[in-house]
Amino acid sequence: MKRSCLLAILFASTVALPSAHAATEADYKAAYAAAEAASKEAAGMRNQWTVTVSALAAARKAADGGDFDRAIAAAKEAEALAKASIFQATTEKEAWKAMEIR
């Protein structure tokens, strides 16, 4: 009984702790900087996605309103999208040839 109680407390604290920790402006700035760097790399490859730009804008808007949880989520989404566009641009350097009419 004691053991299962302890386990339940441990599980509850594991689940609850991250959400209990409110995101700070510093966390947001770090997430946004990473997203912006990836986005700039994609733009440099001439392969920026519109959804990356929208996600970055959403992150800024949420941060301006003081909602850093939402701002970080949007920044992380932007980073993931930017990285996907970089991957696309990199693979397409050769992959486009498969589509060519010969």
Binding site: W49, E92, A95, W96, K97, I101
Partner: peptide
């Protein structure tokens, strides 16, 4: 030619995706 056949955007489409395929 490379631009025409290169996939881009979140939809992963090239010009050829629509206008050739």
């Amino acid at each position: 030619k490379r631009y025409f056949y290169t996939r881009r955007g979140q939809m992963n489409f090239s010009c050829a995706s629509c206008h050739v395929q």
